[in-house]
């Protein structure tokens, strides 16, 4: 008899947890923002932005998070017109063509002429607005590496150990794939083979890779040029530095858009405008550890060294070649 009560209790508690997760607090309109999980985590910019936006919008902001940008897109395409998303935030510029083709987002109709976006971004997309950007690079520990590699070629030829992310799951990993394709083009297979000799492991996401690096498991980790700023500002630690490669660096622009199936398109547009405000840009830069897209944001000096000379890759070319490039990576890195 005891066991029957046990099961009964379990069922009740299970049902309770099912129903509470779907409860909606009150009658305010709800804006659902799909994004990636490090954005919404307690140390990311999500919670602060939620508070700031709710203070002005007279609405309730709810985040729904996926592991990272790539799984965010996959989720959107699986959900199709049944999605609850009003705003999609955290895809990057390389994923824009695909997202538009699939009809998952709508035009924003915002006038960005009054927003002093950095000229280098050269932004004129009809659907997406940028909210931050960063350059991919390899981070190293100054105490361990006295003479850091000054080019990709030098890194590949060295016997330094490297951790990077899976290009299928994580946007930095995909960034490295594009970067290597840009530098080596038809010779990318050999570059990957060379890199696989230096690779400690390929992780699913950025945080696993970075945590392993911080524990001293590799000489270099793939990350952003802004990563040292985090150590300098939050930990007051000058130990970590970002490599500068003579071939140039690839930028990643993170973007947001209104979902094509949003029930609250006006509120969603309001959120996009909010993302581009000076204060918001400053919060994002210092919590998401990326560079602001506006040119008039005051940031600590630690951010100054994060700019690099940019290689350019058109999102359409990346889109066209993605599957082929993934295959190249998969067979070369899989030995």
């Amino acid at each position: 008899m005891k066991s029957r009560h046990f099961i009964h209790a379990l069922c009740v508690s299970g049902l309770l947890s099912l129903s509470t997760s779907q409860a909606i607090a009150n009658d305010l309109p709800e804006l659902t923002v799909y994004t990636y999980s490090s954005f919404t985590s307690s140390w990311g910019p999500g919670p602060v932005l939620k508070e700031a936006f709710e203070a002005v919008c007279d609405c309730k902001l709810t985040y729904v998070s996926s592991d990272d940008g790539v799984s965010l897109l996959n989720r959107l395409r699986l959900e199709g017109d049944r999605t609850r998303a009003d705003v999609v935030m955290g895809l990057d510029d390389m994923l824009m063509p695909q997202t538009k083709q699939l009809g998952l987002v709508q035009q924003h109709h915002l006038d960005l002429t009054n927003v002093p976006l950095k000229p280098a971004l050269n932004w004129n997309d009809s659907h997406f607005v940028p909210f931050d950007y960063g350059f991919f690079t390899f981070i190293y520990d100054r105490n361990r590496i006295e003479q850091p590699a000054t080019s990709m070629a030098e890194l590949l030829a060295s016997n330094a150990s490297v951790i990077y992310q899976d290009p299928r799951t994580s946007t930095p990993g995909q960034g490295l794939m594009h970067w290597i394709q840009l530098i080596y083009q038809n010779d990318a297979v050999n570059a990957w083979r060379q890199l696989s000799g230096n690779t400690v492991t390929v992780t699913k996401g950025w945080s696993e890779a970075y945590a392993m690096f911080l524990q001293g498991e590799a000489d270099y980790v793939l990350s952003y040029t802004t990563s040292p700023a985090y150590h300098q500002l939050v930990e007051e630690n000058d130990q970590y530095a970002a490599a500068t490669f003579s071939e140039g660096h690839l930028a990643q622009i993170e973007v947001a858009a209104v979902s094509a199936f949003s029930q609250q398109p006006d509120l969603a547009r309001e959120f996009l405008t909010f993302l581009l405000e000076v204060d918001t840009q400053s919060i994002i830069a210092q919590n998401n550890w990326m560079l602001p897209v506006r040119s008039d944001v005051e940031l600590p000096d630690a951010f100054n060294s994060a700019e690099r000379s940019a290689l350019s890759l058109s999102p359409d070319a990346a889109e066209e070649n993605r599957r082929e490039w993934l295959r190249v990576w998969r067979s070369a890195a899989g030995r």
Partner: peptide, 10 residues
Amino acid sequence: LSRSLFLAVS
């Protein structure tokens, strides 16, 4: 925890 138990028992 309760969700896991509920799913497994069901």
